[in-house]
Computed example of a mutant assay.
Amino acid sequence: MVYPDVHLARFLNRPNRFIAECELVETGEQVTVHVKNTGRGREVFLQGAQVALSHQPSSKRKTAYDLVAVKKGEQWFNIDSQIPNALAAQGLLEGKIVLPDLNGEISFLKREQRYGHSKFDIFIETDTGQKAFVEVKGMTLENQGIGAFPDAPTLRGLKHVKELTEALEDGYQCYVLFIAQFEKVIRTTLNREMQPELVQAVEEGQQLGLKVLTYNCRVKPESIQVLSETPFDLNQRFVQPD
């Protein structure tokens, strides 16, 4: 996935969760930009942090730039909340993302499939007749090499996990797929301190056959691509960033 017309800038502040003020490195111009992630991102949105802006002006937009990536330490973090679903679908179709215990080859893939009171991100059928739901979650929170989800409580995510567990009883294979939108990660887990209810729901789902997996990504200011599977461990301790 490649973004058009990317410019480097310095992060100044974030008046609200939808916009940020940045200073373009090449010209020093201060610009108001759309933040493509409504999460808190406190550990990456630091004053003076280097960010990547995709210039996409339009008469239909209030801002001419999208903030798509932030540099933390020596590595880039993609913060585009819309990109994980596209990466997941592409990775599944190309065989870069492999779902454990899925029998046969993928013969049909549909994005956004309704089930019960939810709309899951991906529905799959295989050439052996197996059917599966995949709920995709972007992961941008990291500390000491450990990636975690979420960085803020998610009622929607909790609802999806519970309904995936119900779908297991109807014969579907069900997966939660985390796309870690950064590269250097040893292991991933759930942010137990942030949302213990989600941890409990996932634990109950795993006991019934829910599969949870993570793939990390190579991130540059102008691009992001899926790399490889990273271990997910529900019992891994996560230390909150300062």
Rank of each mutant, 00 (worst) to 15 (best):
residue 119 K to V: 13
residue 155 L to E: 11
residue 143 N to S: 13
residue 172 Y to M: 01
residue 136 V to I: 13
residue 165 T to K: 15
residue 140 T to P: 03
residue 162 K to R: 10
residue 148 A to V: 02
residue 130 Q to R: 15
residue 152 A to S: 10
residue 142 E to P: 02
residue 160 H to Q: 15
residue 163 E to Y: 06
residue 121 D to I: 12
residue 127 D to E: 07
residue 151 D to S: 15
residue 124 I to K: 09
residue 168 L to A: 07
residue 151 D to H: 10
residue 154 T to K: 15
residue 161 V to I: 12
residue 146 I to E: 01
residue 173 Q to L: 11
residue 168 L to Y: 07
residue 148 A to Y: 01
residue 166 E to I: 10
residue 143 N to R: 14
residue 129 G to T: 05
residue 135 E to G: 00
residue 143 N to P: 06
residue 157 G to W: 03
residue 133 F to N: 12
residue 141 L to M: 09
residue 166 E to D: 05
residue 164 L to I: 01
residue 128 T to F: 08
residue 173 Q to H: 12
residue 144 Q to W: 04
residue 144 Q to N: 15
residue 142 E to V: 14
residue 151 D to M: 13
residue 127 D to L: 03
residue 144 Q to A: 12
residue 155 L to K: 14
residue 166 E to S: 09
residue 154 T to C: 12
residue 170 D to K: 13
residue 120 F to R: 01
residue 161 V to S: 06
residue 171 G to E: 05
residue 164 L to A: 03
residue 148 A to T: 04
residue 136 V to T: 08
residue 171 G to V: 03
residue 161 V to T: 07
residue 160 H to Y: 14
residue 139 M to E: 05
residue 160 H to M: 13
residue 122 I to T: 04
residue 121 D to M: 06
residue 133 F to W: 10
residue 142 E to C: 13
residue 151 D to L: 01
residue 158 L to E: 08
residue 128 T to M: 13
residue 160 H to G: 08
residue 131 K to S: 14
residue 134 V to W: 15
residue 169 E to H: 12
residue 132 A to K: 13
residue 166 E to L: 13
residue 152 A to H: 12
residue 160 H to A: 11
residue 121 D to H: 05
residue 172 Y to F: 15
residue 137 K to P: 02
residue 141 L to D: 04
residue 128 T to P: 02
residue 120 F to A: 03
residue 119 K to I: 15
residue 130 Q to S: 12
residue 154 T to I: 03
residue 171 G to H: 01
residue 167 A to I: 00
residue 124 I to G: 09
residue 158 L to A: 02
residue 148 A to K: 00
residue 139 M to P: 04
residue 145 G to C: 04
residue 163 E to M: 03
residue 156 R to F: 07
residue 152 A to Y: 13
residue 154 T to N: 14
residue 135 E to T: 10
residue 173 Q to I: 00
residue 147 G to Q: 11
residue 167 A to F: 00
residue 165 T to Q: 09
residue 149 F to W: 14
residue 143 N to Q: 10
residue 169 E to W: 04
residue 162 K to Q: 06
residue 135 E to D: 15
residue 143 N to T: 05
residue 136 V to F: 06
residue 158 L to Y: 13
residue 120 F to T: 08
residue 167 A to C: 01
residue 141 L to N: 05
residue 164 L to R: 04
residue 134 V to M: 09
residue 152 A to N: 13
residue 126 T to N: 07
residue 132 A to T: 11
residue 126 T to G: 08
residue 157 G to Y: 04
residue 159 K to D: 05
residue 171 G to T: 00
residue 166 E to W: 02
residue 156 R to C: 01
residue 163 E to P: 00
residue 171 G to P: 05
residue 164 L to K: 02
residue 160 H to V: 01
residue 157 G to C: 05
residue 146 I to Q: 00
residue 143 N to D: 10
residue 156 R to V: 08
residue 147 G to R: 14
residue 130 Q to V: 13
residue 134 V to E: 04
residue 136 V to K: 04
residue 137 K to S: 08
residue 151 D to R: 03
residue 138 G to C: 12
residue 123 F to S: 05
residue 158 L to Q: 11
residue 153 P to V: 11
residue 123 F to V: 03
residue 173 Q to T: 06
residue 169 E to A: 10
residue 125 E to L: 11
residue 150 P to G: 07
residue 130 Q to H: 12
residue 128 T to Q: 14
residue 162 K to C: 07
residue 136 V to C: 05
residue 158 L to R: 14
residue 133 F to R: 15
residue 160 H to T: 06
residue 129 G to V: 08
residue 137 K to F: 11
residue 150 P to R: 09
residue 154 T to L: 11
residue 155 L to N: 14
residue 142 E to A: 12
residue 130 Q to A: 11
residue 171 G to R: 01
